[in-house]
Write a protein that binds this DNA or RNA. Structure first.
Lengths: 213, 213
DNA sequence: TTGAAAATCACCCGAAAGGGGAATTGACCG
DNA sequence: CGGTCAATTCCCCTTTCGGGTGATTTTCAA
């Protein structure tokens, strides 16, 4: 059974190329190709596609808006963004809106086909450049100043164990020190983090990403 | 000029296969292949590789730890994770630690080679399954599905207070109920979340975004 | 209307958490 | 060399946490 799909792409030439490429009669069957997504909901309900290939920048309504509309109508519809834009703002908007893939338009046809198949198998294809943005996002979140609170290496280690749900006694076992020492370290940690108890410390550490998850 | 690389992989057979595959004398030149990453810093300084292929689960020291160590020594070294693990925790730990790619071990050889080349061209190759986790992470940012654990409205409210660092007594004051009732609610919450204490519950709630930050 | 959750409160009790103070060791620094 | 600081241990002590048991009321859907 071929994957039924809809295309939303405002560039006429590209839309027709896409349609020709994807309507191969074997893996994919193009049920419709539109130059705007103003009536995306109607078209999705009418054709009940398995997959939607969506440009972002289209007249009247952005692909991200249509994406959200389609996902709230038929959450299981797979939606892959296909665009020239690789800026953080557009990427993260689409990711947060529930896109299942994000491919750049310079993707060669063979890879495009492979990527769309991966999308149908539950994977989330992403162009390496786009993935790079995502990696950078996490890296920048992760390695911000954990030293802002001046925690020593030992204190960070003990905080890490606390976050895993360990009791004083368990932490002591892991670190091969006495529970009193653990308690003293945690007292110092609480002072440095300006909190008053373990749960608050865990919350603060996770919120501000003082430790890796 | 071939890309010089180091391999860290504890499975002997796989390490040798990788070495044979990657040491093609054309695009890649394997400068070393090690079964643990205990001395990763030394080996990286000695060989000055362009690229490191790193397993996660290795005896003595995880790949994520070595990753951080290498990145702080030579930030421009490209590091691609190569592992069987596709759980959120490991993926996000590596992403936050500055990985430049995350490939699963079932990646076919041809794709592996392509992915490593992409990594050297500034891209960040990611297996579609891994990308799926990342997409899900972003999607869940916007709409939180707190009902996964079947918490009642009151329980969510009390969990929220706990995360703010409130004691049983303080929560009781906020909610105008007795501390015994607070305790009962928290007991039920712990059972539902499959945790055994407050800190663990806070950690789980924040990690899985059961509550708003 | 009846029954199942949810929410509420109470009591007992042991374990854990956390505050305060005091002291030792070792490393690093000027 | 002495001073500082992180790491460590131990003591005191009180409060809080959390398990267990049992009970009442409220709410909501079948």
């Amino acid at each position: 059974m071929a994957t039924s799909l809809l295309i939303f792409e405002d560039n006429n030439q590209l839309r027709q190329s896409l349609q020709a490429l994807l309507d191969d009669g074997e893996f994919f069957s193009v049920k419709g190709a539109f130059e705007h997504c103003l009536e995306a909901e109607k078209e999705v309900l009418q054709h009940q596609p398995d997959l939607v290939v969506m440009d972002i920048d289209m007249p009247g309504r952005t692909g991200a808006e249509a994406l959200r509309a389609i996902k709230s109508l038929r959450p299981d519809t797979r939606i892959v963004i296909y665009t020239v834009f690789d800026d953080d703002e557009r990427i993260f908007e689409c990711l947060c809106s529930g896109a299942d893939g994000y491919l750049l338009k310079h993707t060669p046809p063979a890879k495009l086909l492979g990527a769309l198949q991966e999308a149908m198998e539950g994977g989330s294809p992403m162009s390496p450049q786009v993935a790079g943005r995502v990696f950078r996002y996490f890296r920048d979140q992760g390695q911000q100043q954990a030293d802002a609170y001046n925690l020593s290496a030992r204190e960070k280690e003990i905080l890490q164990y606390l976050i895993k749900g360990n009791s004083y006694k368990m932490i002591a076992g892991h670190c091969f020190i006495s529970t009193d020492t653990v308690k003293k370290h945690l007292q110092n940690i609480y002072i440095k983090l300006h909190v008053s108890c373990g749960t608050e410390a865990v919350a603060k550490a996770l919120k501000e990403r003082l430790v890796s998850f």
